[in-house]
Computed example of a mutant assay.
Amino acid sequence: MKIQNLLLTSSLLISTSAFASVLKVTTGEDSVAGSLRAAVASAQPGDTVEIDSKVSRVMIKDGEILLTKSVAITSNARTKEDRPTIDGMGRNRIFLAVGRNLNLEFSNLNFSNANTTSIEVNEEHSQMNVDGRSYYIPQTMGSVLLLVGPRNVVKIHDSEISNNQSLNGAITSSNDPTEQPWTSIVIERTIFKNNSTEYRGGAIYSFWTNLKFNNVIFDSNTAKEGGAVANNAGCMNVKNTTFVNNSAGKSGGAIFNLGSLRMVNNQIKNNTAENAGGIFSGYVLQLSNNTVTENRSSDPHNVNSSDMGDIFDLTSNGGNIIGRMTLDHHAGNKIHFEQTDMVNGLVNPTSLNQDGRFEPGLPPCALEEIK
């Protein structure tokens, strides 16, 4: 009986692995045999699309590539210098992912020169039917990746995303808040540099989404609000990450938060905005062992919020160094610092604590640490 069970288990493993294929990308041209578009179109759920490192540049000439199945897209590059670059050619989005329960992974790649700013106003919004369901597509968002639909999981790691343009976010997630669990985006060991948007989230703009960052660098990204990241009504968990030289025309040079934000062991320095050069947080903020200093507010009236501004609900677990910070002028503020924090030059900032009655109206957030 044991032998029969072992044989059955082995047979199932072989059978399952046989369905997962690796599809090779051997050319940087678009819409031809061996292209990225052709490989994605041929992929079945669970397949991997692998770009040969000899293909240094993959050109997206014929519009965005549609993803409606669970796939992994990677390269066989052995070094950062050998990673292929997927190039939006200055006029195209790279990926549009639509559906539910998708598992997508992007790794060992560069993404550059994607652009959704030229879309005509009458094309800004559209509907798309996938698997018998209708989805609303905000066309001007997400120049590198626009993710639409609930219960999806996206992993991005060991990559660089740079020099992309859109109206909101190089990566944008649009989720249905009524469907649980929310879509999750997990990003590790990745660099976002020189991405720009006209409105929110120079690198990332999300709403009703679980965001998790670990060992990420946000450098020199720009937007009107949230030079690097804008979190709208979602859950954001940031660990071991650096925000430097990002800028916002209005608020949140590094981060613009209107959701739940937890930050552990991060560096937020040399970012600029008219208000709150480092972090603007009008909702829930939890801090542990962060350094938020040397950020700037370009408006002299907001100099006291150079590092953090309009803080509404803040809980510290200690070990934070915060330069200049202002609170939201609201009677319900909840502020808690520990003696091990340093804020506004105060070695023991517990005198700033306020026992407000603010209760978050969002669904409970999954704020577990990235493991």
Rank of each mutant, 00 (worst) to 15 (best):
S351C: 03
H157E: 12
V148W: 14
T48V: 12
R324G: 04
E368S: 14
Q267D: 10
N304Y: 11
F243E: 08
G323L: 15
N320D: 15
L146W: 09
K239D: 15
S305I: 03
P84H: 01
L346I: 11
F19Y: 14
L327P: 05
S11I: 10
E274V: 09
I268K: 02
K239H: 15
T16H: 03
V153I: 05
K54H: 09
E188C: 06
L109F: 02
L66E: 04
P177H: 05
S75Q: 03
I185D: 14
F312R: 13
G319P: 09
L67E: 00
P360S: 11
V40Y: 05
T48G: 08
F213R: 10
L96S: 02
Y199C: 01
I217P: 00
Y283M: 03
T209K: 08
F106N: 02
I156S: 06
M128N: 03
Q44N: 10
R57Y: 12
N289C: 04
A39V: 07
E29I: 10
N115A: 08
R133C: 08
G234E: 03
G277N: 05
E198A: 02
L362G: 03
S11P: 05
I65D: 12
I73W: 15
V238Q: 06
L8Y: 10
N348C: 06
G227A: 14
L258M: 07
N232I: 14
T79V: 09
Y283K: 12
S75M: 01
V284S: 12
Q4D: 15
I119K: 09
N333V: 04
G252R: 02
P84K: 07
R93P: 01
T340P: 02
E338W: 04
V40T: 15
F280K: 00
A72L: 09
I204N: 01
S17D: 13
F95T: 02
F192D: 13
L66D: 02
V216L: 06
V25P: 04
S15M: 01
G201K: 09
Q354D: 04
I86C: 07
Y135R: 05
R189N: 14
N214A: 04
G252Y: 04
E123K: 06
M308E: 10
N240K: 11
F218S: 11
F19E: 12
T326E: 15
T291S: 15
A230C: 04
R100S: 07
K69Y: 09
T197F: 01
S75L: 05
S162M: 15
L104A: 05
K2L: 12
L36T: 06
A254T: 03
F106Y: 11
D87K: 00
L367T: 12
D158P: 03
S17H: 10
F19P: 02
Y283L: 11
V25G: 09
A41Q: 08
V58L: 07
N246M: 13
I322E: 11
S162I: 05
N271P: 00
G226A: 12
H125E: 10
G309E: 14
G142P: 03
N295R: 01
N344V: 11
T209P: 03
S143L: 01
V347Q: 12
G278H: 04
L36A: 15
